[in-house]
């Protein structure tokens, strides 16, 4: 029987030291809603678990000097939901985070865990990608920042270096007329995993889309930033032709597989449908800002 150690350090340095020393036997615990399930299923058998929730920075939500947000990697979905202003500025990111699991799971699950789990179907990831979030990671060689879409390396894998721990997400300030939205297709109405997930963030000025980002999940080995879709939206009044072009770009970006959750044909079509629906919601919200 292998031994399992549990550490809950108060400082990031201590956490990194232990995590790096453990090598591939180490696992980071935030909410644990993926890790504990995987352990129970026998998928992973860690020798060391480093609980990061006692590190202040990891559970903090703060507004940055320029008006953006920094969200700690272990902030739970419910904590983000209860924040006074985050959901007003980033309703799409919030709704995506709040779709992870169930109400009970929301008390623990975090966007950080969702990203590090590396699932192409993670709900918060496409919304974070659309939001243009940048992640801060820290490891034995210090801190660095990278765009969120560069984190996933494939199903269950990230581009973090050995010993690196995700610290926070930084979301940029929002110009007037901006908003975002996230939709996913699931066969049920909740407690399900995205067959396709799509986040749109955009800025409208006098009815014209001046900026847009589209994040697309569950249709490729990693969550995708669909630049072609954004390009089709930018400069348009989100008219039918622009939406059709953006939808086609999303469908074209899909590199899905046939599996128990959906077929290639289905996912490819649905990516386009969701682009239109998500954009409509984001635009509606942006008009109020």
């Amino acid at each position: 029987m292998t031994e399992l150690r549990y550490l809950a350090p108060n400082s990031l340095d201590e956490a990194i030291k232990a995590f790096a020393a453990a090598g591939s036997a180490g696992r980071i615990l935030a909410g644990g809603t993926d890790l504990l399930v995987q352990m129970r299923a026998g998928v992973v058998k860690p020798g060391l678990i480093v609980d990061i929730k006692k590190i202040a920075e990891m559970t903090k939500i703060e507004q940055t000097a320029d008006g953006g947000f920094r969200v700690g990697a272990a902030v739970s979905g419910m904590a983000l939901h209860d924040h006074a202003s985050f959901g007003k500025v980033w309703p799409g990111v919030l709704e995506a985070v709040n779709l992870i699991g169930s109400k009970q799971v929301q008390g623990r699950a975090s966007a950080g865990g969702n990203l590090c789990n590396g699932s192409p179907a993670g709900d918060s990831v496409p919304a974070m990608v659309a939001a243009g979030a940048v992640v801060t990671v820290q490891g034995p060689d210090g801190r660095r920042e990278l765009p969120v879409e560069q984190v996933p390396a494939g199903p269950g894998r990230t581009n973090f270096k050995p010993g690196e721990i995700l610290v926070s997400f930084t979301l940029p300030p929002r110009p007037k007329g901006s908003s975002d939205a996230y939709l996913r297709m699931i066969p049920r109405t909740e407690m399900d995993i995205a067959v396709v997930g799509l986040g749109v963030s955009l800025t409208l000025k006098d009815g014209v889309c001046t900026a847009a980002r589209v994040g697309l999940g569950a249709v490729a080995p990693t969550v995708l930033l669909v630049e072609a879709a954004a390009k089709a939206l930018i400069g348009s009044k989100l008219d039918e032709a622009a939406l059709n072009a953006a939808a086609a770009a999303c469908s074209a970006a899909c590199r899905p597989i046939d599996d128990k959750r959906g077929t290639i044909a289905y996912r490819t079509k649905v990516a386009g449908v969701l682009l239109k629906r998500t954009t409509a919601i984001a635009a509606q919200r942006a008009k109020g800002n």
Binding site: R188, T189, E190, M191, D192, I193, K260
Partner: peptide, 16 residues
Amino acid sequence: VDNPGFLDYRMPVCSD
């Protein structure tokens, strides 16, 4: 069986 759990064996939930 490729879906031996309640995530991929989809019984309805209340909101369905």
